[in-house]
Write a protein that binds this DNA or RNA. Structure first.
Lengths: 214, 214
DNA sequence: GACATAAGTGGACCGCAGTCCGCTTAAGTG
DNA sequence: CACTTAAGCGGACTGCGGTCCACTTATGTC
């Protein structure tokens, strides 16, 4: 979840040494690269609060971090990649909460309960990050390939199965996630003036209707 | 639905003449402007099939239509506006089908039937336009303000009410539309290899589960 | 410590979206 | 038809995302 290294560029490289830990890839950066990475993230996060997402240019981030523009792109691939990396840290907290946190969101509660708790948790988690999240959504398809989304999706799918909800679990999971998608939520709350509470009620109603009774 | 005139720029202009028809705005273009508009749309549509959406630049469209670049922007606002205008014509056919076409999609059938018919109709309508639709989605919020989306939304909302579906009709309508959103459908069919038929089944299941029995 | 090399760096460069503003022209008015 | 004016026009210009490649450097090896 953590290391965004879009251009791994490492050739297929048939492993000669057996992997001690089953790490998919070694995201280990060279010392200077790792230092520049954190510098860039710090600079970006500072500029973000100072100037807003709209005024955050790749060049300004590079300048603020004291590195060249090319370095930013090499590390994060593109602008969306940088913004996604900024979101990543926060996302880990949410993930920890639903993967291993206390019930009803975390394990320990019945699947239906966890399902009910999931929507409000996401809504509240993203509540203050709408601008950044929206700014990271340039390509409408990219969202589906982001690791964070994948994790949420498989989590919901798993809960739907465990709760014995009828229907296609994968499609239902997509639909559920779609109903609390940031863009939609932002539109409903900001443009239409619908309070978050009503969205939470909507989530509960939907989950109930799909057959996950509390 | 038809006239995209993003920069009307007409000042508040307290009407002195009473409007004979209650037209919100006069989208009537000057003769030369109207001619250039169709020229631009023709050129764009030609370039689109020849080079694909990705290679469609505003400058190339302008050149192909024999007008200046500024004219394209004045008429369509931005790139997305041009692409949306291209989609508009096709969209009208779909609208005609669910607003005044034959049942079960059009009026005449019970609301639940129409609801069931709506999903497959949209899926099939958009089937061949994914690239163009996706290319028009730059701003994740814009979709919600597009007239076509608004119309679909209020249509679904109306059907949900008439079918006496329990819950918040507006939120449910958003959720239903989200479940057949182009980006999602494209991802599921192209990336995940899920056939359209399965998506249609998913739609029927969802609508049924929400309480609209056939 | 000398060496090899893969990884990292930075800034010149490119293409395109979008803006600006002085010029042109369609279309009412008398 | 002469005149007025608001709408339209076009292309130079700006700013940013993204690419490229010659140069530098960290790191493992002997």
């Amino acid at each position: 979840m953590t290391g965004h290294v879009p251009p791994p560029l490492r050739p297929p490289e048939a492993r000669t040494t057996l992997p001690l830990a089953p790490t998919g890839e070694p995201p280990q950066l060279r010392a200077d690269a790792a230092r520049n990475r954190t510098r860039l993230l710090d600079a970006a996060s500072r500029l973000l609060t100072e100037c807003g997402a709209a005024n955050l240019t790749m060049e300004s981030v590079a300048a603020a971090a004291g590195v060249g523009k090319g370095t930013v792109f090499r590390r994060f691939g593109d602008r969306a990649g940088l913004l996604l990396a900024l979101l990543d840290h926060r996302e880990e907290q949410l993930q920890a909460a639903f993967l291993s946190g206390p019930p009803p969101l975390g394990p320990g509660a019945p699947a239906a309960e966890r399902l009910h708790a999931f929507g409000p948790a996401v809504l509240r988690h993203e509540r203050n990050q709408h601008p950044l999240i929206l700014a990271s959504r340039t390509d409408p398809l990219r969202n589906y390939t982001v690791p964070a989304h994948h994790l949420r999706l498989s989590h919901i799918t798993m809960l739907l199965r465990r709760a014995d909800v009828a229907g296609d679990p994968e499609l239902l999971a997509h639909t559920l996630l779609g109903s609390i998608d940031t863009a939609l939520v932002h539109h409903l709350t900001e443009e239409r003036g619908i309070p978050l509470e009503r969205l939470e009620e909507g989530w509960h109603h939907l989950v109930t209707r799909l057959g996950a009774t509390r």
